[in-house]
Amino acid sequence: MAFVALSEAEKVYIVHGVQEDLRMDGRGCEDYRCVEVETDVVSNTSGSARVKLGHTDILVGVKAEMGTPKLEKPNEGYLEFFVDCSANAAPEFEGRGGDDLGTEIANTLYRIFNNKSSVDLKSLCINPREHCWILYVDVLLLECGGNLFDAISIAVKAALFNTRIPRVRVLEDEEGLKDIELSDDPYDCIQLSVENVPCIVTLCKIGYRHVVDATLQEEACSLASLLVSVTSKGVVTCMRKAGKGSLDPESIFEMMETSKRVGKVLHTSLQSVLHKEESLGPKRQKVGFLG
């Protein structure tokens, strides 16, 4: 991760600002930075999205591949997460340098999707015990400017919203042999329902208060943070404390309340942006990295 070195005076300035509910860039404690979301940026994926949150830049590609269901869940498909902390984001990630952080983020993603409500995995099953769709969700970190987890979860949700899985039919002949037939129409697809896909809201404890969407400088001032994954209805699906400091139980409950409140607003605005973008259809001019 790009690291920042702050002097004591700079830290005091940030901490005092947060105490007064006024942050370095003029935001309040519960305000996000401006989020830019664009879907369908990589055309040889089933779904993709790019999210820019301040200086944090994330690209997510989803590829649907056919495979066999897991033994313990024979009538469900599954999601595979992979996070690549590329050297683009920071020179420290060169070679295998980004693997630790990548695994940490991927494990967090597995955990927040590890419940029945977030994605309807049954719809990914083609043929129980034999064939199912595996969704490979690959996250690519292009630049980090703080609050990685939130940006990644937003990008994953947007990419899953954009994912189109070809519709297949299972034909069975007289001898019981099964044959999979792919639809001829490339637009004949199933779309995942992402209504219950959670987003992560990270709360950084700075001084006696907590802030959402911390920048790198603010992260440097914070000793501990709480990752809460919230659905659009305000249901908490997973929670994790991160950072080297400690938190007292009271502030954890406070932070959870904040994350529910902030998370609901985040989901509403994300949904409206995604639907708006989809309604433009193929006429939409793609900006990608050129804009």
Partner: peptide
């Protein structure tokens, strides 16, 4: 010092 990497989703096959 150069590093080339290609995103896991960049090619037709993952």
């Amino acid at each position: 010092n150069c590093q080339y990497s290609s995103a896991t989703f960049s090619t037709g096959e993952r």
